[in-house]
Design a protein around this nucleic acid. Structure first.
Lengths: 382, 382
DNA sequence: CCTACTTTCGCAACGCTGTTGCCAAAGTGC
DNA sequence: GCACTTTGGCAACAGCGTTGCGAAAGTAGG
């Protein structure tokens, strides 16, 4: 909890690295970095010098002069590091290899039966990950080792395509993010209490981070440019939410946050499989089943409006397979409820916007990779 | 956003000060502080030496020996600083004077008509605050001046009963916490857009912080010992919530968070004065009006369960005049809903506990004082 | 082309942070 | 009374961002 000089260093380094990533290929000058961090130009120079020495940043041309020496533009070196993102769904496995920028440089996709048993699935995941890394980075796992702070980016760790930071795994159902232990994957009781993080970490020899699929997606969207606070509502075979509050994923003490599907919005309504009555999920999915996406959107909108009012978020993002089948219908329907409510209540700052999340079906896997990449840029749990 | 050495210093100082406050009259030893902050004992010695020199901390006896030199116990000096908390309600004005510990050392209470106009009310508040400070600290306002960081605790600032840090004002209705501007006090349109922070600050000559009543109460309860994350549900003439997430009050970007009363839990339910249908507030208050507190508690419980599931909070606290009339009925009713839901869903870590908030009717005013005291202990907005 | 000026950015010295090594102080136990 | 344990202050230290200053690299005007 207490801060020492090392903490200052890594905090400021992460901050600068984050701004470099945001700038993308266009780059940023040292003075702009100084302005945006509140640090002195000299401090930025020292920090960027360390980053350049580590191979994480590089000079990339210069700006036009404004009457004096032109500013030197710095940019992130995306190939300096990679992370693997695994989306483990009920019937599908998707694995992506992402560089520091978050850009996908390799992808594998295959069918999967989550019920085939932990060892079988684990072996499958390990095999696909190993193959992808071997192809993408030109080397296998095992010899790479982990990544311990910034010292880890020394000469030794780099080889071929750069350091592999680790593997992020996103999957549905309650789990313990901090310990990486699954709790209860709905419909697959054989996974109860499975220590996924440790098991996969030992198998692959690199750091592994586990999170709920909705949280991973929210993290990915947050790093991808959705600043501030937002809710990602995922409507697929179930309904869940990932919450980003003040730029950080909100998981709650037990990684239980985001139980959006079982918010009750209809007292004594129809019975949900969770045992309650009138949950958003059962109302929404039965409407979809009846072929009434408009009604489903309205129900989803009521839940979204509740959430937006309670947390004062900046934007609502929609995703998931069911949304993908009629994105505009859902977006419009949810938007209408939010607009109507803000009109009546005279909410400050206007209506909360509603959008369909960018990234499509790959959003969860990309977010899973960000579980490893994010901490580099100050988006981690620390 | 960037951190420099001054930031490290004030962060660690606030951390130590916070642990000293938590320890209360019992005190803490330097080594315990070192363990709990993660700092070295020597760093703690330096920090506490500064605090003792500033008059904020003092030695207070020693522990029993465990085989060597006994530990010296340090404690906070509560009289080293005070803050005023103002609870501005629709029909009542309550002002408390609190010391660094948050203990109330003086209180005034009087009837009030919020509709009497801004200038009249402002004059009344200023008069009561000035009288309370004069009696409590043995000096008037004006010569005291503000408090700028830790340098402000120099010899000059202290006089009589110690430094006055400022005045915190809590009141209902939407407002802008950052700017201290009211937006819309329900039922009193003459306050729309009133710059309360600036107006009262100029009048009193000390820093003023403005916040919603529910947020102030939540802050007070958080500092008072409710650690972690919780929701404070306030049921009085209206229904609102104050949210504490990870030890910090969550206000949202526009201070709009906590709109709990108008969460819709009954699609197409009875019309609420806000224009929506089936809000928790209208369902709950009409049940109270019908003389059915049990039904009101059930409705409140459904809303609380939605909130608890969405945010994964540690505890639900109840407060407000309506709760105070039948505290056990409400607590039991809300608890029952939460227990039933967690039983059905098999929520990890058991049921979220429900309690009636400590502090009674003074909880908002005490929390308002914490708007000034909190930042000293790392509970501020920074 | 040369001079004057502006702007960027690195080197060196600095102040301040927490850390480390060492030792005096203040107890207990035999 | 001696040996030992534990606490906590003094002094030297390493590392952080900051400040002062000057070299580098452009533009603008004669």
């Amino acid at each position: 909890m207490g801060a020492n000089l090392g903490a200052v260093r890594s905090h400021n380094t992460a901050l600068v690295l984050g701004l470099l990533r945001e700038a993308g290929a266009e780059g940023v000058s040292r003075l702009e970095l100084a302005e945006r961090t509140g640090l002195t130009p000299q401090a930025v120079s020292k920090i960027t010098a360390r980053l350049r020495e580590a191979g994480l940043a590089a000079e990339a041309g210069r700006r036009a002069s404004t009457g004096g020496k032109p500013r030197t533009v710095l940019r992130l070196v995306p190939e300096a590091g990679h992370a693997v993102g695994v989306h483990l769904d009920r019937d599908e496995l998707r694995v992506v290899l992402a560089d520091l920028d978050g850009a996908v440089v390799g992808e594998r996709r295959t069918g999967l039966d989550l019920g085939a048993g932990a060892e079988t699935v684990l072996g499958m995941v390990a095999g696909v990950v190993d193959g992808l890394v071997r192809d993408g980075l030109g080397l296998g796992l095992g010899g790479l080792g982990g990544f311990g702070g910034f010292g880890g980016f020394g000469e030794k760790g780099r080889a071929g395509g750069g350091t592999l930071l680790g593997v992020g795994v996103a999957l549905p159902g309650p789990l313990d993010h901090a310990r990486g232990v699954l709790h209860r994957v709905t419909g697959f009781p054989e996974w109860d209490g499975f220590p996924l993080r440790e098991a996969l970490g030992q198998r692959l020899g690199v750091p592994v981070v586990v999170d709920k699929d909705t949280n991973a997606a929210a993290l990915g969207l947050s790093v991808g440019g959705e600043g501030g606070s937002f809710a990602y509502l995922h409507l697929g075979t179930g309904l869940g939410a990932g919450l980003v509050i003040g730029g950080r994923v909100h998981r709650g003490a037990r990684t239980g946050a985001g139980e959006f599907g079982h918010q009750v919005i209809q007292l004594d309504g129809p019975l949900c499989e969770c045992g309650n009555r009138g949950c958003v999920e059962v109302l929404c999915l039965t409407a979809v089943g009846r072929g009434e996406p408009g009604e489903a959107a309205r129900v989803l909108g009521v839940g979204a409006a509740n959430l937006a009012g309670l947390l004062d978020i900046d934007v609502v993002l929609l995703g998931g397979r069911t949304i993908a089948r009629a994105p505009e219908v859902f977006a419009a329907g949810v938007r209408e409820v939010l607009e109507a409510r803000s009109r009546r209540e005279g909410v400050l700052g206007g209506t909360v916007p509603v959008r369909v999340a960018a990234g499509g079906e790959r959003v969860v896997a990309e977010g899973a990779a960000q579980l490893l990449l994010g901490p580099l840029f100050g988006r981690g749990d620390a």
